Computed example of a mutant assay.
Amino acid sequence: MATDSNPSATPTTVEAASLRIFAGADSFGCKLKDALITHLRSLPGVEIVDLGIDAYYTIAEQVGQRVSSDSSVSTETRGLLACGTGTGVSIFANKLPRVYATTCTSVADAVNTRSINNCNVLCVSGMSTSPEDALEILDAWLKTPFKSPCPASGDQPWPTDIQSFLENSTAEMAQIPKPDSSSSNCAICCLRKELVFQPVEIMPGAEMKIVRESPTSAVVKFKAGSLEPAHHHTFGHDVLVMKGRKKVWNLDKNESYELGEGDYLFTPAGDKHRVNYFEDTEFFIRWDGDWDIFLDESLETAADAIKLELEGSK
């Protein structure tokens, strides 16, 4: 790679088989991505892997995973992403460890982020950046080494202490989260640990914590073997199972659904439904309005109905 920090200079030819770039875009960035790939394929020593077009979060994850998992010594792996603004793909790619994705709208952005952040995924805007400008941004990003002089340093070499800080900062970022850590610093996980559940008196074996009201969101837990007798709500509700396994009968539609970890179900307002829990189960639920519940049968009636169904299936 070239060490010349002048953004207007012609990029130095990359040595053969020394750089592999995974590229992708959403529908708003596909034309810009294709233009940049055409340019990259004209450069000796640059291998391009075009992952095509998908939703911005999906394609960003695909590119990010490949950059994150790179363990090659002889070939450097980077990524190129384009979406409408260049921001969405950057956010999602950066969820992967060892991925340093930056949205660049100018040559100075590209030089700064390579020098300061060791950026290995370039994100560009298909809606606001012309192909001509994007080519200049790409060339500057390709030829600028980490810790080189850049606009942020006044185009002067970084002092030794700053160079040391920059190098340590990227190494530290690669440890978030630490692979050997048994705990998580994830804000959502920490919030989950602080939840205080309250028993649901009308449903034995159930505990619930409401986290938002009207529309209402809650986290609910049921012990294995618990039953929810047939009931209905004023509002429709979404359910996402986080762990465990259960079966839901929609009595109005004469349908049933077995749900496990990661499964989703929407029950319309007013539909009577019965639930049986096969394992300790936890799920997230959201009502379109205030939480309420109206029983349509007793616990004993629900147990008898489930027993009859099980006997009939033998």
Results as ranks from 00 to 15, higher is better:
168 N>S: 15
189 C>I: 01
168 N>Y: 04
168 N>W: 04
167 E>H: 13
195 L>W: 06
206 A>I: 00
161 D>T: 11
178 K>V: 01
187 A>F: 06
203 M>C: 09
193 K>G: 00
201 E>L: 10
161 D>W: 09
195 L>S: 03
196 V>H: 11
167 E>D: 15
174 A>S: 15
175 Q>Y: 04
183 S>E: 12
165 F>T: 15
202 I>G: 03
180 D>N: 14
175 Q>H: 11
174 A>E: 15
177 P>M: 04
195 L>Q: 05
163 Q>C: 08
170 T>Y: 01
186 C>A: 03
168 N>G: 03
159 P>Y: 11
183 S>Y: 09
160 T>L: 09
188 I>C: 08
166 L>K: 09
202 I>D: 07
204 P>D: 07
207 E>Q: 12
172 E>Q: 15
203 M>W: 04
165 F>K: 15
186 C>S: 10
182 S>N: 12
166 L>A: 09
202 I>C: 04
203 M>L: 15
194 E>S: 11
164 S>A: 15
187 A>G: 01
179 P>D: 10
177 P>E: 12
195 L>M: 10
159 P>I: 07
185 N>S: 07
170 T>L: 06
178 K>D: 13
162 I>F: 09
161 D>A: 13
199 P>I: 01
172 E>C: 02
179 P>W: 06
196 V>G: 02
198 Q>V: 08
166 L>T: 03
166 L>E: 05
180 D>F: 06
165 F>I: 13
194 E>V: 02
184 S>R: 09
200 V>T: 07
170 T>E: 02
178 K>F: 06
198 Q>M: 07
178 K>N: 13
165 F>Y: 14
182 S>M: 09
203 M>G: 00
202 I>V: 13
186 C>L: 00
189 C>L: 05
187 A>R: 10
160 T>I: 05
172 E>R: 14
203 M>Q: 03
201 E>M: 08
193 K>L: 00
198 Q>E: 12
193 K>T: 07
164 S>P: 02
183 S>W: 07
188 I>M: 10
174 A>H: 12
189 C>F: 00
180 D>I: 03
188 I>G: 07
197 F>R: 02
164 S>R: 14
175 Q>L: 15
167 E>A: 14
177 P>N: 13
164 S>N: 13
187 A>I: 08
183 S>M: 10
183 S>Q: 13
165 F>D: 12
166 L>D: 04
175 Q>K: 15
206 A>W: 02
205 G>S: 09
207 E>L: 03
177 P>Y: 05
197 F>E: 01
188 I>V: 12
171 A>K: 15
188 I>H: 10
206 A>L: 03
175 Q>T: 15
206 A>V: 00
182 S>D: 10
198 Q>D: 11
199 P>Q: 05
171 A>W: 06
169 S>L: 12
172 E>K: 14
165 F>W: 12
192 R>C: 01
